[in-house]
Design a protein around this nucleic acid. Structure first.
Length: 238
DNA sequence: TCATTAAATTGTT
DNA sequence: AACAATTTAATGA
C-alpha cells in the first residue's frame, strides 16, 4: 500500500481548478504569477504515499490541493511522532526550502490526495521578486509557530475531548488552511490517527462537541459551527 | 437517469 | 475489536 515519492512519478501541469486552490497565486504580480503557474506541478498521492522523506534533498515547496496529509518525524527509538495533519490549502517545507537543507520530516498521504509542488529555484526566485509572496511566507511561518506551541499544550492534556477539540481547531485554521472552509473532509478514523486516540474515543468526543454546538458531524467530514467554542475547550475538564 | 450492489464510514457494545 | 446501521460510490441497464 505504501509506495514512494509519488509526486516525482506522475507529475502534470495543474488544471485551472487546481490553480484556483493555490492561495498565494493571487498575491503575485502578473509576471511572477505567469512564471509560477508555468513551473507548478501537481501529482496524485495514494494513501500511504510519501510526498517527502526525512533526509532527502529539497526538490519542491509543497502544498495540498485536495486530500489530507500527515507530517511526522522518526524518533531515535524507531517510533514515529505525528506533528500535524495538513488539509487542503496548506503549504509546507518553506523552512527547508529556504536553507536548501534536507527535509526534517516525513509527509505521508492519509488518503488519496492531490499535491502541488513549486520547484525550489522558483521558490527562491519568487522571494527575490514578489513582496506579496514574501508576506505570504512570513505569515505562514508565524502562524505555524503558533500552531506548534499550541500542539505542545495539546500533548500535555489528558482529556481526550479537549485534545480532539484543539486538534480540530488547528485543522480549521483559516490562515494556514484556506482550502478547508466550513467543512473539513476527514473521517473519524483519520482524525483518530492524527490525534493518537482510538476511533471510538474520537467518536465519543465528536458527539460531545456536536452536543455543545461547536461542530456538526457529517458522513466523511466535520462542519465547524463555532470555532471559538472549539478553541475554548482548553479549560473544560470533562 | 434509475435501480441494484459494493464499499466506506459511522454508531454502538 | 467486532458488529450492525447508514451513507456514498460504482455498476449496468
Amino acid at each position: 500500500m505504501s509506495t514512494d515519492l509519488s509526486l516525482h512519478h506522475r507529475r502534470r501541469a495543474p488544471t485551472p481548478a487546481e490553480m484556483a486552490a493555490i492561495p498565494w497565486l493571487a498575491l503575485l504580480g502578473a509576471n511572477e504569477r505567469e512564471r509560477a503557474e508555468h513551473e507548478l506541478k501537481v501529482g496524485d498521492a495514494l494513501t500511504g504515499d510519501f510526498v517527502c522523506r526525512i533526509g532527502r534533498p529539497v526538490t519542491y515547496w509543497f502544498g495540498v490541493v485536495d486530500g489530507l496529509l500527515k507530517m511526522s518525524s522518526d524518533s531515535p527509538d524507531g517510533h514515529s511522532m505525528t506533528f500535524t495533519g495538513v488539509p487542503p490549502g496548506g503549504w509546507f517545507g518553506e523552512g527547508t526550502a529556504l536553507k536548501r537543507e534536507p527535509y526534517r520530516y516525513n509527509i505521508q498521504a492519509l488518503r488519496k490526495s492531490v499535491v502541488a509542488g513549486l520547484p525550489v529555484d522558483t521558490f527562491h526566485w519568487l522571494l527575490d521578486h514578489s513582496i506579496g509572496f514574501n508576506r505570504f511566507v512570513m505569515n505562514q511561518l508565524n502562524e505555524r509557530l503558533g500552531q506548534f506551541i499550541a500542539a505542545r499544550e495539546i500533548d500535555r492534556m489528558a482529556n481526550p475531548e479537549v485534545r480532539v477539540a484543539r486538534s480540530l481547531a488547528a485543522l480549521f485554521n483559516p490562515v494556514l488552511y484556506p482550502g478547508v472552509g466550513e467543512l473539513l473532509r476527514i473521517t473519524q478514523q483519520e482524525l483518530a490517527y492524527l490525534v493518537g486516540l482510538s476511533r471510538q474515543r474520537v467518536n465519543e468526543a465528536l458527539t460531545a462537541l456536536a452536543t455543545q454546538g461547536a461542530i456538526r458531524v457529517e458522513y466523511g467530514g466535520l462542519r465547524v459551527l463555532d470555532l471559538t467554542a472549539l478553541r475554548a475547550n482548553v479549560f473544560q475538564t470533562s
